[in-house]
Simulated assay, not measured.
Amino acid sequence: MYNRPESAERVTDHLVTLGISLPRWSYGPLDPVSVYIKLSPNPDWMSKAKRVTISSISVGIEEEIIYNHEGDEPTRKINTLAKQRQTVGVRMPEAGYFTNLGLVFPARELRDNEGVLLRGKREYPMYAVSGFTTTGTLYKIEYYLFVKAKLSSARDILLRQPIVVCPFDHAGCKEEMEAIEQAAKDAAHISPDNPMLPAKTIIKASDPAGLRALGIAVVGGTRKPLIE
């Protein structure tokens, strides 16, 4: 479900509309983050919208930690993990302005200065990310992909799109999902009462080979044990 594309739009002063499109909304360490950006003028205010100048467009990833999110006074702390800025400096075209911006999701180095990978603890597993999307009783960690368009003759537009951050990259998650799907298929053939035995076989009276499955054959109108 995290591979489906996501799109969003934001308007500040009804002159310019900022729209973004993401090919997927789940990322891990060193995953490429690509954003399709579109700035469209308002056709009802075209004369004013064409006087707007696009100064720059910024893309980044923010980590928002909310302490006591279930209480009356939650505390929010926002950290910028990665940011990229592109200078544009053009007037708003009548057909709109389109561009693609991308960055790499930051990863944490697990090795020390000498290149040694330290042994991790079971209580504190070592991941290549500083944090991931999670919700607890005392705190909650969320991640946002923000796109900011700095304009002249119009108000700046800021759009924050929530994303999901995973401790594993996209390739690792795909391998894990394939293993989980295969395990689920194998579990369907196991009896829940005794996992050492295969699943129970149900034979209906209307089955044409039902007696054969039970080891019985009809010979001369009499049921006899089947000997193969």
Rank of each mutant, 00 (worst) to 15 (best):
R119D: 11
A128R: 15
I20V: 13
M1H: 01
F132W: 09
L138H: 13
L159I: 06
M46F: 05
K140C: 10
L117G: 05
V218I: 04
D207E: 15
I216W: 14
G19D: 06
P195H: 09
P162G: 04
K77E: 13
A183F: 02
P125T: 01
A179E: 14
H170C: 13
A184L: 11
G220Q: 08
Y27G: 04
N79F: 08
L214G: 08
V219S: 00
R85Q: 13
N42E: 08
R108L: 11
P125N: 03
E94K: 15
G89V: 04
P225Y: 09
E70M: 14
P192K: 07
Q84Y: 05
V90T: 13
E176M: 14
L81Y: 06
Y124G: 02
S191Y: 11
G96F: 03
R160H: 02
V104I: 09
T134R: 13
N42A: 13
P125Q: 03
P208K: 10
R4L: 11
E178M: 11
Y143E: 04
T222G: 00
T80Y: 03
P5T: 05
I190S: 08
E181L: 12
P32T: 03
N113K: 15
I57V: 10
T133F: 02
I227G: 00
D193K: 14
P93W: 12
E178V: 05
S26K: 05
A199Q: 13
K148R: 13
L158M: 12
E114H: 03
V35R: 05
D13N: 00
R223Q: 10
P43H: 10
K77W: 06
S153E: 09
R155I: 01
M196P: 00
S152C: 08
W45G: 02
T137G: 06
Y143P: 02
E9P: 00
R108I: 09
Y143T: 05
L15G: 00
G215R: 02
D169S: 11
L101M: 15
G115P: 10
V219W: 00
S21N: 07
A49H: 00
A213P: 00
L159K: 10
R111C: 09
P208W: 04
V116T: 14
D207N: 14
R108M: 08
Y27A: 06
I78M: 06
Y27C: 04
